[in-house]
Design a protein around this nucleic acid. Structure first.
Lengths: 340, 340
DNA sequence: CTGAAAGCGCTTACAG
DNA sequence: CTGAAAGCGCTTACAG
């Protein structure tokens, strides 16, 4: 494979169009001083031979920067951006940016090969995001930022987190649950706060305000879900349902149940958040609030404004609706206390 | 960001080295007719200004082609190649190649931007792999090919599948299991056949040959695991352990248990294959045969021979050892039949 | 081995 | 608006 090789030289194209090389070059570079008719004729010819106007002549590559790739959550974002970019013939370079060394490697690589746009996944540290933004004037969009996004400063894609939390709460209320626990994520993650707020508001509005003892926090992984669920299940009157901050936590809650010989939804209803593909793998399959992660990545790509149609180049912030996916980990509460 | 811009022109470098432009150009292009001393002096200067010898002047990009990105298995391969390539300052373009349209998109993209190497994930169809190989003379390595790899024809990375199967069988035998079932993958997937053969051989050697009724096949997903486990659990004398063909299937087996109010390992021991990150998410956490997927992708990258050290450019086929990861889904068999 | 010179593909200031 | 001409950065055949 060789560097993008054009089938013909500009000189040959000039001959074909029966026009001077100079004019062909001017058309290619979008200069103004060319007759409209000439421009049209020549630019068609150019395109046919694989040349594109200088303004549109990109690298054909965007970068997706992500903290780590091991979570199913991350994989969905990769998948969504690859699909969206592929439709425009753009390639997606995936880089992990967990350490300072990786940031330096990425800098070096993009200096060599160039990039037409950068998608930053919000689970990267604020510091890393600032570093990336500072060093480039390439269009950049943050996916699911950890902090409340300041649209004057950075462009971002999110989901309706507050509504997502409300959706989960309403689902449990409809089943008749009254003793509902919230396992919120880390309190410094903005999206997690918004989700928990959605739950709290919905419960209060329904007339069953959240019991303070049932408002917990934990990291976004199974270990935290398992630990907090174990604590809650040891309470004198445990909750009948738990709303977790992501699917990983919800899997941990199911582990805690299994360890005690209990199961969902008989002894405890469990709701996750994200709807990663493995949410269907749990026993029982997980009821969860769906964040359309692939669609979010696709929207972020379009906000780069690289497609032929310009995409959503003007949009500063965009929010996609969350929705409830009901599977088998939720059901009506048992009356009274369950026999162990 | 601009196309790789060199700080100085060759003419300026020639002046700096007090030598003619011609000679500088010859050094850059690796011509033979330059004095060793001159070459050394000039080539150092060139490198310092961001030029590299024509032979080494790549695109700084490799391609990873994969069938789909939703499985945790796929995500690990992405992660491994990104890490390995990053160390050489190379970028990894990830593309899904599920449909013919996607293949065409990828062709177009690589024609534009170029690529220094291609990693193909073996779960792509043989036809797709052949198409990709036919259209390029870029170094190409297949990761975990579905068919027995013919080293004269394609280069590949695999794991010791037969040994992996044996490992799983031995682990169960040591716990005292005698009624062991094998849920093999699709019989046209070479790696799956090898794994099942490993189990069969190990059991036979131990003097407890596999009961034919306990040799099943199924797709590599939870639904298949759940269905086959349900069948096996309905047998008059069910197995005490199941060896699944991948972690997804094993999750399905755990679902079937939960549905019946049973659990692993009390009523049935379950072993997966792969050790994807979510293997720790199940209830209980999954005992599984570890395929070092990230290491496989890293090795495949090195077989492209792009690094400064040449990597494993000469290797045609490379096999990495599988290993057993014992967690909580396996244990000694219950004596007699369990009460439901 | 070296480098002056011709040449290639492209851009651009400028005369018409 | 057009294109002849100068020029730029690089490569290469060839004389020494």
């Amino acid at each position: 494979m060789d560097r993008p090789s054009h089938s013909k030289t500009l000189t040959e194209i000039a001959a074909e169009a029966d026009i001077s090389l100079s004019t062909v070059s001017k058309v290619l570079n979008g200069r103004g001083d060319v007759a409209a008719e000439t421009r049209q004729r020549v630019s068609g010819l150019l395109r046919r031979h694989g040349y594109r106007p200088a303004a549109q002549r990109g690298f054909g590559v965007i970068d997706l920067l992500i903290g780590e790739l091991h979570s199913p959550w991350a994989a969905e974002l990769v998948s969504g951006s690859v699909k969206a970019a592929g439709r425009d013939g753009m390639s997606v370079v995936v880089s992990t940016l967990g350490s300072g060394r990786e940031l330096a490697e990425w800098r070096r690589a993009t200096n060599n090969r160039g990039t037409d746009g950068v998608l930053i996944v919000g689970n990267l540290s604020r510091e890393t995001i600032l570093h990336v933004l500072a060093g480039t004037n390439t269009p950049t969009v943050v996916i699911d930022p950890n902090e409340e996004p300041d649209a004057s400063f950075l462009r971002s894609v999110g989901t309706t987190n507050h509504q997502g939390g409300a959706l989960a709460a309403r689902h449990l209320l409809e089943f008749g649950h009254r003793r509902i626990a919230v396992l919120a994520g880390p309190s410094d993650v903005w999206a997690c706060r918004a989700r928990a707020d959605g739950v709290v508001t919905e419960l209060a509005q329904a007339g069953f305000p959240l019991d303070r003892r049932f408002h917990r926090h934990g990291e976004l992984n199974p270990a935290a879900g398992r630990r907090v669920a174990a604590e809650l299940l040891s309470e004198p009157d445990p909750p009948t349902a738990i709303i977790a901050a992501n699917d990983g936590q919800a899997f941990g809650v199911l582990q805690a149940l299994t360890e005690r010989g209990l199961r969902a939804p008989d002894h405890l209803s469990v709701i996750g958040y994200d709807d990663v593909p493995v949410a269907t793998w749990s026993a029982p399959p997980l009821t969860t609030v769906r964040q359309p992660l692939a669609a979010m990545a696709g929207a972020a790509y379009r906000m780069l404004g690289l497609g032929a149609d310009g995409g959503f180049g003007e949009v500063r912030h965009l929010e996609i609706a969350a929705s409830l996916v009901v599977r088998d980990s939720t059901g009506p509460p048992r009356l009274g206390r369950w026999e162990t």
